[in-house]
Each structure stands twice: as C-alpha cells, then as structure tokens.
C-alpha cells in the first residue's frame, strides 16, 4: 500500500475544498435556514408534532441526509471527472499506485467534505430548534457510512461520465427524486397505504429512517433493516468499484 500517495491525493483534494471554504460553508447554512423558514414555519404551523417530536426537529435528520447525499455524489463525481476532463489523469495512471489507493484518496476526501457539511447543517439547525440526540454514536456512524457510500457512488458516476451532462444526469434524474421522496419532510406513516408500500422500494427511506432513529429513537422501518440497507448499498458500490478496477473500464485505453 502506497500510503504516501493516498495521503498526497487526499491532502490535495482537501486543499481545493479549503480554498473555497467560505462557499462550502455558507451555502449549506443558507439553504438549511431557508428550509427551516419554508418547511418549519409554513408546514410546521399546520403539523405541530410528528409522533411526539416537534416538526422543526423532525425534519433535521432528513435535511442533513439530503445535503450529505447530494454533496457526496457531486464532490466525488466531480473530483474524479475533473482530472479526466482537463487531462491531469495521466498522472494518476502513470504513478506507482493502484486503483484502490486512488479510490481511498478521492472518496475519502469527498466523504470528509460532505461529513463536514453535514455537521455544519446540524449546527445551524440547532440554532433553530432544540435537539437531543438519542444515540450519538449511531448517528455519527450512519452519517459517516452515508458519506462514504454515496461518495463511492459519485466516484463511479465520475468514472462513467463522458461529459458534463452525463455527470449531472444520474443525480438529477435518479437521486434527487429518491431523496425528496425519501421521507425527509414527513413520516411514512402519514402516507396512504398504497404509497407506504411503494415507498419501501426507495432505498433512501431506510437511510433517513435509520438516521432519524439515531436522533429520536423512532423509525418508519426497523433499525436493523436500515443498517442492512446501507451496508448492502455500500457493498454494491464497492463491488462495482472493484469491477472497474479489474477491467480498467473507462480509465485506461
């Protein structure tokens, strides 16, 4: 294992992040505040409580997941697509490193960035509502796992994408709808029966439910199933990355 190379890539990617720190910091703060104004105030005035939790607090885990998922994908997909686009990928290919080391460097950096943003949102949210976290370790574990698995997914998208449109395509057409319909702003139990069943095919539901359990000790689906879902998703992404590694698909001519 070429640890120095992993560290060099990670460090380099993180400096890019810190160069635009204000941007990285401000935009989640503003969008979280807006969500609170729009959802918390407008809807919250009609729905006071969901299963004993104030509506404002109820949407916090979903809000964090929403941003963290989108950020992980866009950070990681852009992170590996950019060198392909500007040609600096030659350096990754000619260095004495293997694909796993490249993945750890890029996915690690992307996951760190979105973890940071997730924590910023949590901090911002706690200014608006009272939050107590029932299972802090589980909360962190869920957050980290989500960051890593969606960064892996982003990495795959970045390798696959042949142009900027394709880079946006998957997040826009698949991930955004799944995330918005994943129960960020409502409890599944509030839906009609038929929609409750359909929703169970949305993997994001398991994530948000599990994450919410870590906060409030209440969930739409059992926590064990949530854990299984996120583990399966991470495993799937790892398997695809391994396949790309084996075949050199879309990397080496």
């Amino acid at each position: 294992m070429n640890f120095r190379a992993v560290w060099a890539i990670y460090r380099y990617e993180m400096t890019r992040f810190f160069r635009t720190l204000m941007q990285s910091f401000i935009s989640p703060v503003i969008s979280t505040s807006l969500y609170f104004v729009v959802f918390g105030t407008a809807i919250g005035s009609r729905i006071q409580e969901v299963e004993g939790v104030s509506y404002g607090a109820f949407i916090v885990p979903g809000l964090i997941m929403l941003s963290v998922i989108m950020q992980s994908i866009s950070n990681a997909s852009f992170g590996i697509y950019f060198p392909k686009f500007i040609g600096t990928i030659y350096e990754l290919l000619s260095a004495p490193i293997n694909f796993l080391e490249i993945v750890i460097g890029y996915v690690g950096a992307a996951a760190t960035k979105s973890l940071f943003i997730g924590l910023v949102i949590l901090g911002t949210a706690s200014l608006f509502v009272d939050l107590t976290i029932a299972h802090p370790f589980a909360m962190i574990a869920f957050l980290v796992l989500t960051c890593v698995s969606f960064a892996l997914m982003g990495f795959i998208i970045g390798i696959w994408a042949g142009n900027f449109e394709q880079l946006q395509l998957v997040p826009l057409l698949i991930v955004t709808p799944l995330v918005f319909l994943g129960g960020s702003f409502y409890s599944i139990s509030m839906l009609p029966d038929i929609w409750q069943t359909i929703t169970l095919f949305n993997p994001v539901v398991y994530l948000i439910s599990g994450f919410r359990w870590a906060f409030f000790d209440m969930a739409d689906v059992p926590i064990g199933i949530s854990l299984l879902a996120i583990a399966a998703f991470t495993g799937l992404c790892l398997a695809i990355v391994w396949l790309i590694f084996r075949t050199g698909w879309r990397i080496r001519a």
Binding site: R4, A8, Y12, T15, R19, F82, I86, T88, P96, I97
Partner: peptide, 23 residues
C-alpha cells in the same frame, strides 16, 4: 499536452506528484 490544473499553485502540484510516487 499541457495537462495542469489551472487554479492550482506551482508548489502544490509539484508536491502532489512527489507524494503520488510514494516519496
């Protein structure tokens, strides 16, 4: 081709290469 990241500083990019080669 001149394949370089335009916004990066000279020092950082040179240092990155050395690191990637495990030095």
């Amino acid at each position: 081709e001149i394949n370089l990241e335009p916004f990066e500083k000279v020092w950082n990019t040179v240092r990155l290469t050395r690191g990637m080669f495990g030095k």
